[in-house]
Structure formats: C-alpha cells, structure tokens
Nucleic acid binder design. Structure first.
Lengths: 163, 163
DNA sequence: TCGAAACCCATTGTATCCCGTCAGATGCTG
DNA sequence: CAGCATCTGACGGGATACAATGGGTTTCGA
C-alpha cells in the first residue's frame, strides 16, 4: 500500500505572534488530493529535532498497520505492552490541527516546544510526510547532508536573513 | 473493522469539588462524529493504573469482538469461563456517564477511586479509546515512555504546576 | 426534611474566524 | 516589449464565539 501523491519541495515561512504559520500551498495541494480534510497531524520526529507532519489519510494508514501488527502477535504478553506504548505515542503524542481558508495553522504550544520552532518554520517535503524545522537547528544538525543545508541557507537568504 | 474517527491529543483538566471534569472538546467531537450519544463509558484500564474511556459505538464494537473470540475457541472448555469473565469485566465493571451541555461529566466515585484521580485529570487520546490519568501516576509509571512523560510535564507546566 | 445530584447561569481567557494589506507571479493588451 | 490588470499566497490585526471552570438553585429520592 502506498500513497499516490507525495510531498515535495521546500519553503520558509514566518511564525507570527499568535503562533500562526502558513502551510505552503504546494503541500496543501497534496493533502487535498489525498483526501478532502483540511487537517494536519503534527508529531515530534522520531530521529531529528523537528516536527513530522502528515494528513489524515496517512494517519489512518499508520493506525491500520499498528492494528495488524497487534493481531499477528496477540498471544505474546510483551507485545501487548509494546502495542499500548506505540499506540499512546501515535495518538496521545500527536495533535491534529485544521488549517483555515487562507491555509494557516496555529502551532500548538506543545508542538512548538517539541520542535523548537521559533519565528521561522522551514517546511521540507519528505514523500509520504513532510517535516517542519527550525532552520537554525537544521543547519546545526550533523546528520543532515550539506546539499540540504544549502537549500536551507538559500531559503534564508531569500528572506534577507543570515547572510 | 475499524472506526473512522480516532481519539488523539492530550489535555489536562481540573476536577472540581463536585467531582466534575470537562471532557476536552477535541475528544467530544470524535464521540459525536462516531454517533450522536453524548455518553462516555468508563472502565479500569487492563494494563495501566488509569481509566479507559470510550463512546457507545466502540462499546458495541468491543462486544462483537468478544463474541468472535468466543466462536473461534469454542472447542476449548476453559474458554467458556474466560468469556464469562471478560464479558463481566466489559460490562459490569464499567460505568456509563452522560456529559452535559457544557461538556462535563461527573466522575463516579468508584471510577475515581479505581483510577486514583485526584484534582487533575490527564486525558490521552489512544485511537479507538482514550485514557484518563492522574498525572502523578503517569509520571511514576515505569512502563510509560519518557516522551509521553514529557508531554504530561508540559501539560502540568502549562497550568503552572510542578515545575 | 435533609442531602446529593442534576440543572442553570455567569465569568474568563483563549482560539477561531474574518477582514484588509502587501508582494510576487501571471497574463493580457496596446 | 513595455505597461497595466488580475490573481493567488503569505501575513497582520481585530472582532467574535466557545471551551473550561466556578458558583448557585431546583429537584428528587432516601
């Protein structure tokens, strides 16, 4: 099973005083092609100091994967605990936010903290999902390839920042 | 079989002197999308020291799951007893409470005791169901992932508690 | 008649909606 | 090809609705 439309591209948008950010139009168009909910689920990325974001269609896919995993190993008592933990992380540790007619979400304070997002948010398409970074953290992250950092630097210069 | 709308997100609400708690609006909206009853069923969680909560639609689903489990293992003599026990736990050991127009339930004293809920209730979305915790117990629970505890701590700080 | 529980109302802070502005891109026209 | 009009995306600010919570009052059963 795979999703037909994939997230790609990058953009740097500002976070205003109310914590609002415009989700780039090219990402929104993917969400709306996958389903018709104007919703985004936010979670802390598992590996990087950023946020992972996806649409309801991908969330449902992820959930059904978890369910099937459980049914397969139902007899194992350890797997029951494992399931409970994954389930909590997948649902309690995520937040679903709608975006308005102008395409903006408000970053929930908890997510803003988890992703360490300050006054600029760097959006990066990542196929099935996309990521939201504090650009400074991306530039400081050793596991991110230089080519990727160049893109971030370009987006910053475009805005007249960090020359 | 799966439910379309899933519970997700987290919130910390206060329990007042009368034992009333507001069920977070984002959880209520899921309940009301699944069916139109403004009701919540409460039960002791099977694995954790907290309460498990769900809507009437899920209760029906759970019942049919039990039925199917019984049919599958009908030949096993122990399974009949097993079924009776599970069935009792699923129905006798639960309480159904309505929430009022402002979205509040009164925690039944027995459930309040079972879940050890004091003056704050931490709501955690868990997909098909959600959980209600005494935040202190969650922080003390070794089987809960640290990332989850961070969220609990954030919710507490948000309220100016436990710094 | 008393106590508890359901119901009703009132307050506060916050988040949601709606408006207007501004800039870049596109495209049409002379 | 220059100049102008239009459109869409990003952003700021203010008005409004609603969620969360406290307190009071009526109702009903014990």
């Amino acid at each position: 099973m795979a999703l037909e439309h994939l997230f790609q591209g990058s953009a740097l948008n500002s976070v205003d005083a109310k914590g609002r950010v415009s989700v780039p139009a090219f990402l929104r168009s993917v969400i709306e092609r996958r389903g018709d909910a104007r919703m985004i689920t936010l979670a802390k990325h598992e590996a990087f100091p950023c946020l992972s974001a996806y649409d309801p269609a991908y969330a449902a896919l992820k959930h059904s994967k978890l369910e099937r995993l459980l049914e397969k190993e139902e007899t194992n008592p350890d797997s029951q605990l494992d399931y409970e933990q994954r389930n909590l992380m997948a649902f309690a540790a995520t937040e679903e936010v709608p975006y308005d007619s102008s395409g903006r979400i408000v970053l929930p304070p908890m997510m803003r903290r988890k992703g360490d997002i300050a006054d600029f948010a760097l959006f990066l398409g990542a196929g099935e999902t996309f990521q939201i970074w504090n650009p400074k953290l991306l530039l400081a992250e050793p596991r991110i390839p230089d080519d990727m950092k160049d893109i971030a630097r370009f987006r910053l210069e475009e805005r007249g920042l960090k020359l």
